[in-house]
Amino acid sequence: MGRIEDTFTKLQQRNEKALIPFLMAGDPNLELTKELVLAAEENGADLLELGIPYSAPLADGPTIQQAAQRSLAHGTNLTAIFKLVEEIRQESELPLILMGYYNSIFNFGLEEFVKQCAEVGVDGVIIPDLPPEEGAELQELSTELDIILLLTSISNQTRIEKVTNLSSGFIYAVSTPGVTGAKEELSTEIEKTVTKIKQFKDIPVAVGFGISSPTHAQQIGEFADGIIVGSAIIKKLEKSLDLLEEDEEKLIAKVSDFISSLKKPLT
């Protein structure tokens, strides 16, 4: 059993929901990302998504796009991210999922990507611009690596069945039509899709896009197996970036406190 499946099983036994924070690797530098990952784990993260920064992120709103720009400013690439994961793995067994755009992975080489993931201990990958129709090659190569696919509130039954059959680890359900970004009001329209997925197959479903507060976490936790929070966490980090030089611990504490507040309603 892989780390992802294992984690969801354990959470289910404890009647808990998964908190999956998203951090952009290298925002603002890779050393801090490592500290943030370890702090996130201590403060309730059950799995974690690490973003591969990309220059033209089609599914992301301004918050994550700017995080990518900060990371790219000092040349973060997949080679550096694999090294980061290798370092994290020396201290942690937290399930790690890479989230990035297909061109980064295609350019790196699919075989090499899958090989590196296995070597350093990446458990899954989310590629928002790689729908299953285009993902056959990667699917074939990824025997160990979970390929987590996305479904939305406007996916029809045929689509739900097709994607669910091909997804491994869990399903990423997109809360609202749009790009990533923290929202004030969150629609729970996605509940219907989650129900349909569950009726079709027993697979964990995590909801992401727009989740920005413990209240949202609670709302989504009512019906999903986990929540994914990206932009809201990055905003906390962004606001405290001036602490980077003088008081890194305080910066990390601000982000971890928020992560911890998101986990509470899920336990």
Binding site: L58, P131, V163
Partner: peptide, 18 residues
């Protein structure tokens, strides 16, 4: 669908599929 040799295709977010 929509291939010209190996080129083309539809590499898009799931939300655009419908």
């Amino acid at each position: 669908k929509g291939r010209f040799g190996e080129f083309g295709g539809a590499y898009v977010p799931e939300l655009l599929i419908p």
